[in-house]
Amino acid sequence: MKLLVVEDEIDLLEVIRQSLEKENYLVETAGSYVLALEKIVSYEYDCILLDIMLPDGTGLDLLAELKQMNKSDNVIIISAKDSLEDKIKGLEMGADDYLVKPFHIAELNARIKSVLRRKSLNGKNTIEHANVKIDLDERQVWIDGDELVLNRKEFDILSYLAVNKNRLVNKTALAEQVWGDYMDGADDYEFIYSQIKNLRKKLKEKLAGIEVQAVYGIGYKLVVA
């Protein structure tokens, strides 16, 4: 999978690149409109992360160019402008998703994978790790063909961790994903632990080939045992 990251903030660009490379993507970067346009014209990408505010142009113009060239590259807009109009405009112009800066890397991963899954053949929205299969549309989990019944929060935690397999997902990102944006500021997210505990127990009972590991007060990660 080949990705292009268009972002003028070098620090952020670097963090995104490093993080995506851990997912074994081929990552190319562009720090300006001109550089990005050059790459877009010359190559095909599976997914393009597009910043709207660039020093020499706007990401929306790049998006327009892309559509004019009839390219089918997937586009996720990343922008600090969280106004609704920008969001709608971007999506209307053919972007696949919209992510407001600042975002958690885990969230970016999830969005990219979701876009790529939708693009890939037969459009099945499932994740498989070891003997565990997660159907994101039907919100069902099977272990060796056996259904594992989870409550809403457990399912959200499992799927979010599964999308970010082997990656550290911090507690804030997890809480925002599962409990909603309004939970932030509520202590140290210790309350996540009780749901994680239940999830682990259920996975273990069904002899799942994956497990949820805690990473030193930072967060959790899902690994294949």
Binding site: P102, N170, I218
Partner: peptide, 20 residues
């Protein structure tokens, strides 16, 4: 507050990458 958002997010992201 707006300008602080990105540096804060980048620091957190870098630390998370380091922790991995």
């Amino acid at each position: 507050a707006h300008e602080l958002q990105t540096p804060l997010a980048i620091s957190l992201n870098r630390l998370e990458l380091l922790a991995e």
